[in-house]
Design a protein around this nucleic acid. Structure first.
Lengths: 98, 98
DNA sequence: ACGCTAATTAGCGATTTAGGTAATAAGAAT
DNA sequence: ATTCTTATTACCTAAATCGCTAATTAGCGT
């Protein structure tokens, strides 16, 4: 959970997620959208991948990234339980904060 | 938004929020719940306060902290828009990620 | 003014993070 | 085998983070 939230706490990474929600994209395509070097983008991808927010698949010379919905849903459940005032329907998360 | 997510990406701080949701508490009361020094806790409070997730009010020699629901709701809205697959009703957040 | 309590700020060390350039790995194609 | 493209890993620097102890501020009560 720490990793997921930390991954989300950078606007570039959130923007990457936002883009991937609309469809898969290669590292190059994503990198082209931002004003930072490719290695820097590559590390952003790594952070997102470590948090399991995206998945990577090699396709020839390029690497295709895709959004992973399940982790986001889990996080939303936990966050609603933590700080939500709105009604929540299916909040069955098995996370305990120390 | 970065600050809010970063504030949430530490389990101690989430635990503090979780506790404050059940009612206000002084810095000392909160600090007593965790296995870290008071100065360290004090900085955690600062992070949460900077993110506007909690509010502080001096009461005599002690400082009473309280949970701030509005920011959490905003965040939840933005996060649902970003990574939610569940139905969302009132998602009217005015945040643009760079 | 002095002392006591509660909490913070100051300062330190170790670790992590975000950015960059240079070097490397993986595939495809000639 | 070499070359070209794509993307990563390696290495560096500057800045932020988390923990601590020591010192300071703020308020209350003698």
């Amino acid at each position: 959970m720490n990793d997921v939230l930390k991954a989300l706490s950078h606007s570039t990474r959130r923007a990457v997620l936002s883009h991937l929600r609309k469809g898969d994209a290669t590292a190059g395509e994503l990198a082209a959208l931002f004003d930072v070097s490719k290695p820097t983008m590559s590390r952003h991808f790594q952070v997102l991948k470590d948090a399991d927010l995206i998945a990577a698949e090699r396709r020839g010379t390029e690497i295709v990234y895709s959004f992973n919905a399940s982790v986001g849903d889990e996080l939303l459940g936990a966050l609603m339980a933590l700080l939500g005032t709105k009604e929540r329907t299916s909040a069955s998360t098995s996370e305990e904060q120390a």
